[in-house]
């Protein structure tokens, strides 16, 4: 068997793969499911999935073990990519360190350097007013206490109920982690809705 045969198989494979890919691409209703909260500095979801090399270096670098590796059928095309389960372990923004470790170790441009903590957009906290204690007659300020930017990302309205400022919230999930209700009243929504990728 010659090299010509191998090279032919390679070229034929590229043609076939491109064709199948184009066909899959054209089918409607294809979404990036499930949506995951990505580590800080992540690009838009589509770009992040294209760029992430699935090496897990951010997972081992994270000093708080906030970043986890998504391995399993349920993660679909995100298999092997990093995510943050904010309810369990939020992103502490590498407190006590002079840099964000995950961004520093990323070998690709999947996690991009951020100017400061305020420009991170991991996701967006959203209050579920039907469950939130403060909205249901109990005094509770857990999320406000936990928030790294209190009175900015989480403010109180005139009835002492927390309100998320969408332009300031970085999606670190400290509020989600601190929320005393079960399930959480302030889940962090992944950044998928904000991404401008072609496949969202």
């Amino acid at each position: 068997m010659s090299w010509n045969r191998r090279q032919f198989m390679l070229v034929a494979g590229i043609a076939t793969g491109t064709g199948i890919g184009a066909w899959v691409q054209r089918r409607p209703g294809r979404a990036l499911e499930p949506a995951l909260v990505r580590p800080p500095g992540a690009r838009s979801e589509a770009e992040f999935l294209a760029t992430c090399i699935r090496c897990g270096q951010c997972v081992t670098a994270c000093p708080f073990d906030s970043i986890k590796l998504a391995v399993g059928v349920q993660f679909g095309v995100s298999n092997g990519s990093p995510y943050v389960d904010t309810r369990e372990t939020p992103c502490y923004l590498c407190q006590g360190r002079d840099r964000l470790e995950c961004i520093a170790v990323c070998p690709t441009s999947a996690l991009q350097p951020v100017a400061d903590d305020r420009s991170i957009r991991m996701g967006l906290a959203a209050i579920d007013e039907s469950k939130c204690l403060a909205y249901n007659g109990t005094v509770c300020r857990s999320c406000w206490h936990a928030c790294p930017f209190p009175n900015e990302a989480i403010r109180f309205d005139n009835r002492l109920r927390p309100v998320v400022d969408m332009s300031t919230c970085i999606g670190c999930g400290l509020c989600d982690h601190a929320c005393p209700t079960d399930p959480t009243s302030i889940p962090v929504r992944p950044n998928v809705a904000l991404s401008t990728g072609s496949r969202t």
Binding site: G13, T18, V24
Partner: peptide, 16 residues
């Protein structure tokens, strides 16, 4: 080699 080509082709069009 065909599978290598198919994965590369899928990667190009699906951007994954």
């Amino acid at each position: 080699y065909a599978i290598l080509g198919i994965t590369l082709g899928l990667t190009i069009t699906l951007r994954l």
